Amino acid sequence: MSALTKMTQVEAKLFLRDARAPATLLGLPLALLLVFGLMPGVNDPDPKYGGRTGLAAVIAPMSVALMLAMLALTMFPNVLATYREKGVLKRLSASPVRPSRLLVAQLLVSLLSAAVVVLLIVGVGRLALHVELPRNLAAFAVSILLGTASLFGLGLLIAAFAPTGRAASGIGGAALFPLMALGGVWVAREQLPPLLGHVADVLPLGATLSSLREAWAGNWPSPLQLGSMVLVAVVCTAFAARFFRWE
């Protein structure tokens, strides 16, 4: 068994041992889906969404995008910054195990958690609320991959500069709220002014949400949405790699 595999297993156990993280990660998006799903009329065809239900057109994609953002911007950087704060990364640098392997292991655990929750949201929505599945599965997969890359790139950038775990959570939370406000989470994109609609398409959370909505409707995301996610992922990851401090 390789050192990376062992470290990933350890990180997964630590993640599951802290009940708050899985509960938050699973509870909030699923609660959002279920609470809105039980509201009268939300599962009825709506001309505003092209005859689709509000649950499939907005709520289900929003639950997935919000889960990815929470994991990438608050939980992921918090763990890395806490390890730096406690000297874990510094001690690893003096051992045969490279600190970068811990980073990769933590990233793998986070990505696996994201995959599980995406499947749960889609599965619970389908079985419990009869939410239609994404009509364009290829576009859905591309949106998930690029959205995850852009949001985790931003989370890695936060982890690169945050001196402590508490600071990482604070910075991530401070970044999350404006991204939600401008990304079509609090107000549906159709209700945003045209200028803010274009802004939503270039922000990582807004681009992810809009891409997922397009995929659920059976369409392909716009080149602007796809390109913005790629750009954010590349730029944030490059800056994080350049300035990341192990101690």
Score class of each variant (00 low, 15 high):
88 V>A: 09
55 L>G: 05
82 T>C: 04
65 A>R: 00
43 N>M: 10
48 K>S: 13
93 S>F: 06
86 K>M: 12
43 N>K: 11
56 A>Q: 14
48 K>R: 13
39 M>V: 14
72 A>T: 00
45 P>W: 11
76 F>A: 12
63 S>F: 00
70 M>V: 08
76 F>N: 07
90 K>C: 02
83 Y>H: 13
73 L>F: 04
72 A>N: 00
83 Y>F: 14
62 M>Y: 00
81 A>V: 03
79 V>R: 14
80 L>T: 05
78 N>V: 14
80 L>N: 05
93 S>M: 10
62 M>H: 00
83 Y>K: 11
54 G>M: 11
64 V>D: 00
41 G>T: 06
48 K>I: 14
70 M>K: 00
57 A>T: 06
89 L>W: 04
55 L>W: 08
57 A>E: 07
92 L>D: 05
59 I>E: 09
81 A>S: 15
93 S>W: 06
59 I>H: 07
47 P>W: 12
81 A>T: 03
89 L>S: 04
44 D>H: 09
82 T>N: 12
61 P>A: 07
58 V>T: 04
91 R>T: 10
92 L>R: 07
42 V>F: 15
82 T>H: 12
74 T>Q: 15
78 N>G: 15
70 M>H: 02
44 D>S: 13
70 M>F: 09
38 L>K: 05
81 A>Q: 01
56 A>P: 03
39 M>H: 07
89 L>F: 13
50 G>Y: 12
84 R>Q: 09
72 A>G: 01
41 G>S: 06
42 V>A: 12
50 G>K: 10
72 A>H: 00
58 V>N: 06
61 P>K: 03
93 S>L: 08
50 G>Q: 11
39 M>A: 14
44 D>G: 09
